[in-house]
Computed example of a mutant assay.
Amino acid sequence: MTQANVAHSRTEPGNIAFDVFQDAKDPDMMVQLERWTNAQTHDANLKRPVIGEIRGVFSQTLAKPLMSHRALLKDVSGSSTNS
């Protein structure tokens, strides 16, 4: 994931936040955290051709296979602009 990919993803319709974090103790461990207005906008984003291209690059460049986990979370902090 390049900074350009991150910057572009942040401009996609429905994207609220797109951040990539590196584990402080294990530089090979990365976490990508995305926030979308709803599941439909996230699903639409996942169908873009560039997502397949990025995943193809990941399979060739990551130290370990990509772990895919999607959790749909509800913001209960009161700070969300969504209901």
Rank of each mutant, 00 (worst) to 15 (best):
T2C: 06
Q3S: 12
Q3T: 14
Q3G: 15
N5E: 04
V6T: 06
V6K: 14
A7P: 00
H8D: 03
S9H: 06
T11W: 03
P13Y: 12
P13H: 12
P13D: 08
P13F: 14
G14Y: 12
G14Q: 03
I16A: 05
D19N: 09
V20R: 11
V20S: 10
F21G: 02
D23H: 14
K25F: 05
D26N: 15
D26Y: 13
P27Y: 12
D28R: 11
M29P: 01
M29Q: 13
V31S: 12
V31P: 00
Q32A: 13
Q32D: 02
Q32T: 11
L33I: 08
E34S: 14
E34I: 02
E34F: 08
E34Y: 06
R35T: 01
R35W: 04
W36I: 03
N38D: 15
N38P: 00
N38S: 09
N38Y: 02
A39G: 03
A39N: 00
T41R: 04
H42Q: 03
H42I: 00
H42G: 00
H42E: 02
A44D: 05
A44V: 00
N45P: 00
K47S: 10
R48G: 03
P49G: 09
P49S: 09
P49L: 06
G52R: 08
G52L: 02
E53M: 06
I54C: 03
I54E: 02
I54M: 10
V57S: 09
V57G: 06
S59W: 04
Q60S: 13
L62T: 09
A63C: 06
A63W: 01
K64F: 13
K64N: 10
K64W: 07
L66Y: 15
H69C: 06
H69Q: 08
A71M: 07
A71D: 01
K74L: 02
D75G: 07
D75A: 11
D75R: 15
G78Q: 05
S80H: 08
T81M: 10
T81L: 08
N82M: 12
N82S: 13
S83I: 05
S83F: 14
